[in-house]
């Protein structure tokens, strides 16, 4: 019965969709002549607006962030038109596959996903850390035994704590010693719980953590790292040409100082940007 229902769901919806958007179906594929990525190409930058300072709402309420500025710089470099495609992080793969965006460029961790996408060169180092209150008495990863630890869903810190493959740096064994692993929709909420004492620590990447701590005293990272990772841009596996173009542009922008200039706007991450280093 359920199968029939599911089938009918897909059928009815697809019929409706078919009639609703029949008009826009013609331009699915642009002609793949030699100059597909020539001047005027509309580059669709897919990103999550919940990920400061890589992609977020800046102090003026505008869409901004290091990744957004970089993507715009690449567009300028090639004479492309920049189109921002904010998406819901949980739906990033569907968005990429469906072609609503050209890439996932949003503080996107390469480690552990090596085979899932076509990757640009890494542009930022990002270490996974444990954030605690300075006076918590927690000094090392071992002290986390029996503690409540918070993490944001669908982040690499979360993946790390779920991964039981120690060769890949998986930290599931550590997570098993926690009293509990609390999974949050956003780090902001997790941070509030840390402040309120509902949890004892947060597993987080260093840049997001720095960002959270930038306005608050009394918090610190443990010296021990939870894991390390790099950020890169994820493309659909067959988009080699686009990937190469972006790589070339990143090199060029690193060379002419643009990267450094943009990074200067984001003091909490500028030390981690690896382009041109």
């Amino acid at each position: 019965m359920k199968k029939i229902l599911a089938l009918l769901l897909v059928l009815t919806m697809s019929i409706a969709v078919f009639t609703a958007c029949g008009g826009s179906s013609s331009d699915t594929e642009t002609s793949d002549g030699g100059d597909q990525y020539g001047e005027g190409y509309v580059f669709k930058h897919g990103f999550d607006l919940d990920y400061p300072p890589y992609s977020y709402r800046d102090d003026n309420g505008e869409v901004g962030g290091f990744d957004v500025e970089m993507a715009k710089a690449v567009c300028e470099y090639y004479g492309w038109e920049y189109e921002s495609v904010p998406f819901n992080w949980d739906a990033k793969d569907a968005e990429l596959n469906a072609g609503s965006c050209d890439c996932i460029w949003s503080g996107f961790t390469l480690n552990g996903r090596e085979d899932d996408y076509l990757w640009s060169k890494p542009y930022s180092d990002n270490t996974q850390k444990i954030m605690v209150k300075k006076d918590s008495g927690i000094k090392s990863l071992a002290d986390l035994e029996g503690k409540k630890v918070g993490v944001q869903t669908a982040t690499s810190a979360y993946d790390l704590l779920q991964n039981d493959n120690e060769e890949e740096g998986g930290q599931a064994a550590l997570a098993n010693k926690f009293e509990s692993l609390e999974v949050y929709e956003t780090y902001t909420i997790a941070f509030n719980d840390l402040k309120a004492g509902a949890i004892d620590a947060i597993a987080i990447d260093v840049t997001s953590g720095n960002f959270l701590m930038s306005n608050e005293d009394g918090y610190t990272f443990l010296d021990e790292d939870l894991g390390s990772e790099v950020y890169a841009i994820g493309f659909r596996k067959d988009d080699t040409e686009l990937c190469e173009k972006i790589n070339a542009a990143l090199d060029a922008l690193a060379e002419d100082g643009t990267v450094e200039k943009i990074a200067a706007n984001y003091p909490e991450i500028k030390d981690y940007i690896t382009l041109g280093k």
Binding site: R57, D59, T186
Partner: peptide, 9 residues
């Protein structure tokens, strides 16, 4: 959600 994330507020 977005502003809360960027303003930690």
């Amino acid at each position: 959600k977005q502003i809360s994330a960027s303003q930690t507020s």
